[in-house]
Design a protein around this nucleic acid. Structure first.
Length: 970
RNA sequence: GCUCGAGUGGUGGAAUUGGUAGACACGUUGGACUUAAAAUCCAAUGGCCAUUGUGGCCGUGCGGGUUCAAGUCCCGCCUCGAGUACCA
C-alpha cells in the first residue's frame, strides 16, 4: 500500500498538478494586468470567440495557445502584460435556436459561455479574467451604441482628411453654405448658399445633414436574404448565398442605416503599410477596397425627340442635345477614348427607362425583367453567356461628336463605378466579345497591333493611333493628355474609383444591439447619453412581425413608449408625444469593432475607457486569429479605430501592430459505404467499381488504424442496428477524408477527452508541435504520445533520487556541467528565436533534444534545471509551476526572469575557412570545427580534385596553415 | 481567369537564410524487461547497389542556368491549396 502511494507522488501526475495550479492562478490573480506600471506594456490578444452550443473543439485553442505562449514569454521578459478574453455573444445561431424552441437567446448564450469558460480554464491560459467583456451585456453594448452616436454626430472633411463634429459642419453651412465645403457625402446632396441654409426648415436641415453623417439612413439597394428575413453585408455573402445557412440572396431597395466606410478607403489602404500583418490578408483588404486610377467621362445623350414625343417620324435621329441626360462612366483607360464604338449600361441603371426609344422599349423591358429575376448566383454562374439589348438611344462622343449607340448588358454591374461603361472593343476583351456578338464596329486605335482575333490590353507596349491628338503617344502620356482635354471640355476629370461600398448596418434581427435611435416625424434622433444603454426588450416571438417589421416590432410597448424607456433627454419629454424607436438591430460586427480597446478599462461605467488607460496601453501589440475575418471584422475595426483616432478618443489610428492568422485545424471525417439500394456496407478496400453511398460516421467510433467499432455504430444511430457489414481481413475499415471540423460531419474532436487522458500541457505542446502556426493542418491524435512522453522524461529529469524522488544538486553550474550548460544555452537561444518568429513547433523539438541530452549527461544542477523550467513554462505552464515549487520557490514561475543566453557556453560547431590559391584569397569553405588538420586537408583536396578534373589539369597540393588558412599550391 | 502561398522519406514536418538534406516526432521492424499485457528502455528505418570493410551511386515536383558549393538564388513549365471573381 505504502509503495503505491509513493509511486503516485513521484510520477508525473498531471491531473493533480493541473487542477492545483489552475486554482492557484485564479486565487492569486497571477495574470492580472495593471493600468499603470513601471514596466513596459505588452498587449497580446486572441480573437474572442462566439460561444456556440457545440463548445470548443481542438481547433479553437490553437491561436489561444500561441498567444498565451507569447504573453507568458513577455511576462518573463519583464513586461506588464495585458492578455484578456471575452465573448462575441450576439449572433444568429442563438436567435435561430430561440425561434425553434422559444428559449431566450440570453439563456442559451449564458449556458454556452459557462461551458466555454470551463473548457478554457482547463487549458491553463494566462487570461486576466477580471477584464472579460461580453458584447451582449448592456454594460458593454452601451458603448457600442455610444460609438454609433459619435459616428452619427460626425462628417468627413476632405480638406483636413479626417472626421469632424457635425456642429462644425453646421457652422460652415451657416457661414458659406456648402459650396466651399469639401466633404464626403451622398451624391444627391443639393448645393446651397448660406442664405439658403438659414432659410431651410429644421426638417430640411436634418435631411441634408443626414447625407453628410458618417452613419446615415438612406434608401439603398441591399442584399436581402428572404430565408433569414434580413439584409446582409457584402462580406456575409459567399458565392451568392448567405454565409450562414447558404440561403439565396436577392437585391432589394430598403431604408437602412449605413456606415460611410468609403470615406476612409484611401486611409485604410495607406494604413496597411504601417502595420505588420500577413501579406495575403493585406492583399485581400487591398483587393476588397479595390482602388483604381482613371478618369470619369461624361457622355451627353443625343435627344431623340421623335422617340420621346411623337411616334410619327421616329426614324429621324435628331442631333439636338438633351442636357438633362448625360451618362457618366468610369474608365481606367481614358487613352482609348477614340476606340469607343458603343456604351453599355447596367440593366438597373436609372437612365435606362428614360433614354430607351419607343420601338426598343419592349425588348429593353423584357431584358431588364429577365435580369432582375435571375439571382445574383445565377448571374455569376454563367459569365460566359453574352447578353444585352440596344436602347435605341445614342450618346455624343466628347471629341469626335459622332453618335455612339447605347446598349444595356448584364456584364456591366450596377454596383461598381457608375454602372455604365464606355466600350472600347479593341482594348477590352469583354467589350470585344460583346461587339462581335452583336456585330458592332471594332475600330483599331493601336499602332501595329492585330485585333482580328482578340482585344489588345497590354498597357506597356501600347502606342495610340487613329486618335487625333493622342496619336503616337504611349499609354501613360495618352492618359494624361486625354484627361487634360476632357477637363478643358468640362466633360471629365481624373478620378480614383474604389470598389469598396458603404457598409449596411441594419439587421432585421432580435439578438443584436438595439440602435440608440428614436424618430420624430420620421427623422432619426439620438438617445441622450444619460439614458444609455437602450436595452433589448423582451419579446414573445423572435420572428419578424406579421406586417413585416423586424422582431423588435413585437415589443410594441417598448417601441412606442419611449418616455418610460427614458430614451429622450429629460427636457424634451412632454407627456403627449410618442416617439417610435428604431426596430432594427446592429450587425454582428458592431460589437467586435472596438472590443480590443474596451479591454483596457472594461469595467468603466463613465466612459468607453479612461484616457489614462488608453494612453498607457495604446494598441494591441500582437493579435492572433483566423484569416476568415480579413474583409469583415478586421476591416471594420480598422475603420472604427481611425474614426476614434480622428475624434481624439484613441491615440493610434491602427489598433493592432502585428497580426498573425493561425491556420485552421481540419477534421478527418470517416465514411462507411452502403451498397446502393441495400442495407449492406462495404469495407473501404472492397468498393472497387461497386456503386456505393458514402455516409459520415462519428470519428469517435474509429480506432487509430481506421477500424470501425461496429457494435458502437449500431448503438450510435438506429439506422445501422440491423445493417450488414462486409469485412476485409475480419475488420471493417472506414474511408477517410479531410474536411472542416463540423458537427454535421461528425468529425469534431473535443479537447476535453484529450485533457483527461494526457493533460492540458500535453495538448498545448501537441497543438504547437503539429506544424507551423499559420498553416492549416488536419487533426490527428496519433502523435500525442510523443509529446506526452517528453513531459514524463522532463519530470524524470528532476526526479533522479534512488526511489525516483525529487533530486537536484546545489553545486555551482560551472563545475562539471560544461556539456549541460552548452545544451541549456543552445536551447535558450533556439527557443527565444522560435518564440520571436512564432515557430512554436520547432521549439518543442528543441526541448526534447535538450531533455534527452541533460538526461544522458545525468545533469542534476539546480541552476540549470531552474532555467529549463522557465524555458518550458510558456508552453507547459502547469508542470513548470510544479517543478518550480519543488525547486524551492514561493512565487509563481510566471514572475521569474527569462534565462539570458550566454555565447561563451555555446561554442560554434563550424567555421568559415578562407581558401587561397597560390597565396591569393579565392573563396571560403564552411567546415565543421571539430575537423582535424588531416580531415580539412582531405575535404579541400576532394574539392580540388573535382575542379582539376573539370578543368582537365592535375590536382594541386593542399596545405593547411593550422587554425587559419588553407592554401592550394602547385 | 487574376492575386498570393506551397511542393522535401510511409506520415506530420526540420534545415542557423548558399555550406555534411531528412533534425524532432509519429508509424513500422527487431530486441530487452514481463507468465502475459500495458508502460518503459535499446537498436534499425530516404532509395538502389556492393559488402561481412568502415564502400559507392541516386535523391528536396519537372527542365535548364548561376556558383567551388543550390531544398535555398535566376529563367521556363507542372501540380496542389487559399482568396477573389464580368471591377470597366
Amino acid at each position: 500500500m505504502q509503495l503505491e502511494k509513493d509511486e503516485i507522488t513521484m510520477n508525473y501526475n498531471f491531473r493533480e498538478i493541473e487542477a492545483k495550479w489552475q486554482k492557484y492562478w485564479a486565487e492569486n490573480e497571477t495574470f492580472k494586468a495593471f493600468n499603470n506600471s513601471e514596466k513596459p506594456k505588452y498587449y497580446a490578444l486572441s480573437m474572442f470567440p462566439y460561444p456556440s452550443g457545440a463548445g470548443l473543439h481542438v481547433g479553437h485553442p490553437l491561436g489561444y495557445i500561441a498567444t498565451d505562449i507569447y504573453a507568458r514569454y513577455k511576462k518573463h521578459k519583464g513586461f506588464n502584460v495585458l492578455h484578456p478574453m471575452g465573448y462575441d455573444s450576439f449572433g444568429l445561431p442563438a436567435e435561430q435556436y430561440a425561434i425553434q424552441t422559444g428559449q431566450h437567446p440570453a439563456i442559451t448564450t449564458e449556458a454556452n459561455i459557462k461551458r466555454y469558460r470551463e473548457q478554457l480554464d482547463q487549458l491553463g491560459f494566462s487570461f486576466d479574467w477580471s477584464r472579460e467583456v461580453r458584447t451582449s451585456n448592456p454594460s458593454y453594448y452601451k458603448w457600442t451604441q455610444w460609438v454609433f452616436i459619435q459616428l452619427f454626430n460626425s462628417w468627413y472633411n476632405k480638406t483636413s482628411d479626417k472626421a469632424e463634429g457635425i456642429s462644425d459642419l453646421i457652422a460652415l453651412f451657416e457661414k458659406d453654405g456648402n459650396t466651399t465645403v469639401h466633404a464626403i457625402c451622398d451624391d444627391d446632396a443639393p448645393i446651397f448658399s448660406a442664405e439658403d441654409w438659414n432659410g431651410f426648415s429644421d426638417r430640411t436641415k436634418q435631411e441634408i445633414l443626414l447625407k453628410y453623417r458618417l452613419t446615415y439612413l438612406a434608401d439603398t439597394e441591399v442584399n436581402w436574404c428572404p430565408a433569414l428575413g434580413t439584409v446582409l453585408a457584402n462580406d456575409e455573402i459567399v458565392n451568392g448565398v448567405s454565409e450562414r445557412g447558404g440561403h439565396p440572396v436577392i437585391r432589394k431597395k430598403m431604408t437602412q442605416w449605413s456606415m460611410r466606410i468609403t470615406a476612409y478607403a484611401q486611409r485604410l489602404l495607406d494604413g496597411l503599410d504601417t502595420i505588420d500583418w500577413p501579406q495575403p490578408l493585406k492583399d485581400s483588404q487591398t483587393n476588397w477596397i479595390g482602388r483604381s486610377e482613371g478618369a470619369s467621362v461624361i457622355f451627353k445623350v443625343i435627344h431623340n425627340s421623335d422617340a420621346e414625343r411623337s411616334r410619327s417620324d421616329r426614324n429621324v435621329i435628331s442631333t439636338s442635345l438633351s442636357h438633362h441626360h448625360q451618362i457618366e462612366v468610369f474608365t481606367t483607360r481614358p487613352d482609348t477614348i477614340f476606340g469607343v464604338s458603343f456604351m453599355t449600361l447596367a440593366p438597373e441603371h436609372e437612365l435606362v427607362s428614360k433614354i430607351t426609344t419607343q420601338e426598343q422599349k419592349e425588348a429593353v423591358n423584357a431584358y431588364v425583367e429577365a435580369t432582375a429575376k435571375r439571382s445574383e448566383r445565377d448571374r455569376m454562374a454563367d459569365v460566359k453567356t453574352i447578353s444585352g439589348v440596344f436602347t435605341g438611344a445614342y450618346a455624343e462622343h466628347p471629341f469626335t461628336k459622332e453618335p455612339v449607340p447605347i446598349w444595356i448588358g448584364d456584364y456591366v454591374l450596377a454596383s461598381y463605378g457608375t454602372g455604365a461603361v464606355m466600350a472600347v472593343p479593341c482594348g477590352d476583351q469583354r467589350d470585344y466579345d460583346f461587339a462581335k456578338h452583336y456585330d458592332i464596329a471594332i475600330p483599331n486605335i493601336f499602332e501595329g497591333v492585330d485585333i482580328s482575333k482578340e482585344a489588345f490590353a497590354d498597357k506597356a507596349t501600347t502606342v495610340i493611333a487613329n486618335s487625333d491628338f493622342l496619336n503616337g503617344l504611349s499609354y501613360k502620356k495618352a492618359v494624361k493628355a486625354a484627361i487634360y482635354e476632357l477637363e478643358k471640355l468640362g466633360q471629365g476629370e481624373g478620378k480614383i474609383n474604389y470598389r469598396l461600398r458603404d457598409a449596411v448596418f441594419s439587421r432585421q434581427r432580435y439578438w443584436g444591439e438595439p440602435f440608440p435611435v428614436y424618430y420624430v416625424d420620421g427623422m432619426p434622433q439620438m438617445i441622450a447619453d444619460e439614458h444609455l444603454p437602450l436595452e433589448l426588450p423582451e419579446v414573445e416571438k423572435y420572428l419578424p412581425t406579421e406586417t413585416g417589421e423586424p422582431p423588435l416590432g413585437n415589443a410594441t410597448d417598448w417601441a412606442w413608449n419611449s418616455i418610460e424607456n427614458k430614451v429622450v433627454s429629460n427636457e424634451k419629454i412632454d407627456n403627449t408625444t410618442i416617439f417610435p424607436l428604431e426596430l432594427n438591430t446592429m450587425p454582428g460586427w458592431a460589437g467586435s469593432s472596438q472590443y480590443f480597446n474596451r479591454y483596457m478599462d472594461s469595467k468603466n461605467d463613465k466612459a468607453i475607457y479612461s484616457k489614462e488607460a488608453i494612453e498607457y496601453w495604446e494598441d494591441v501589440d500582437l493579435y492572433i486569429g483566423g484569416s476568415e475575418h480579413a474583409t469583415g471584422h478586421l476591416l471594420y475595426s480598422r475603420f472604427w479605430q481611425k474614426f476614434l483616432f480622428d475624434m481624439g478618443i484613441a491615440p493610434k489610428d491602427e489598433f493592432a501592430k502585428k497580426l498573425i492568422n493561425q491556420g485552421m485545424i481540419t477534421g478527418t471525417s470517416a465514411f462507411v459505404y452502403r451498397l446502393a439500394g441495400t442495407n449492406s456496407y462495404l469495407s473501404n478496400g472492397l468498393i472497387e467499381s461497386e456503386e456505393v453511398d458514402s455516409i459520415h460516421v462519428d470519428v469517435s467510433l474509429i480506432s487509430a488504424s481506421d477500424e470501425l467499432d461496429i457494435e458502437a455504430l449500431k448503438e450510435w444511430q438506429p439506422e445501422f442496428s440491423d445493417a450488414e457489414f462486409i469485412l476485409e481481413d475480419g475488420k471493417y475499415i472506414v474511408g477517410r477524408e479531410i474536411e472542416k471540423m463540423s458537427k454535421r460531419w461528425f468529425n469534431v474532436v473535443n479537447p476535453d477527452a484529450i485533457c483527461e487522458e494526457y493533460g492540458a500541457d500535453s495538448l498545448r505542446l501537441y497543438e504547437m508541435f503539429l506544424g507551423p502556426l499559420e498553416q492549416s493542418k488536419p487533426w490527428n491524435t496519433a502523435g500525442i504520445t510523443g509529446v506526452h512522453s517528453f513531459l514524463k522524461k522532463l519530470w524524470r529529469l528532476y526526479h533522479t533520487g534512488p526511489n525516483g524522488e525529487f533530486y537536484v544538486t546545489d553545486s555551482p553550474p560551472l563545475e562539471g556541467q560544461g556539456e549541460a550548460l552548452k545544451s541549456l544555452h543552445k536551447t535558450i537561444k533556439k527557443v527565444e528565436e522560435d518564440i520571436k518568429n512564432f515557430s512554436f513547433n520547432t521549439s518543442v523539438s528543441t526541448f526534447m533534444i535538450c531533455v534527452n541530452e541533460l538526461t544522458s549527461q545525468k545533469c542534476s544542477s539546480k541552476a540549470i534545471l531552474e532555467s529549463l523550467a522557465i524555458l518550458v513554462s510558456p508552453y507547459a505552464p502547469h508542470i513548470a509551476e510544479e517543478l518550480w515549487e519543488k525547486l524551492g520557490h514561493k512565487e509563481s514561475i510566471a514572475e521569474a526572469p527569462f534565462p539570458k543566453f550566454q555565447e561563451k557556453y555555446v561554442v560554434e560547431s563550424s567555421k568559415e575557412y578562407p581558401i587561397s590559391f597560390n597565396g591569393k584569397m579565392r573563396f571560403t569553405m564552411k567546415l565543421p570545427l571539430d575537423m582535424g588538420k588531416d580531415e580539412i586537408e582531405a575535404a579541400v583536396m576532394g574539392h580540388e580534385k573535382t575542379q582539376a578534373q573539370l578543368q582537365g589539369r592535375t590536382p594541386k597540393k593542399v596545405i593547411v596553415v593550422p587554425g587559419k588558412i588553407v592554401n592550394i599550391v602547385g
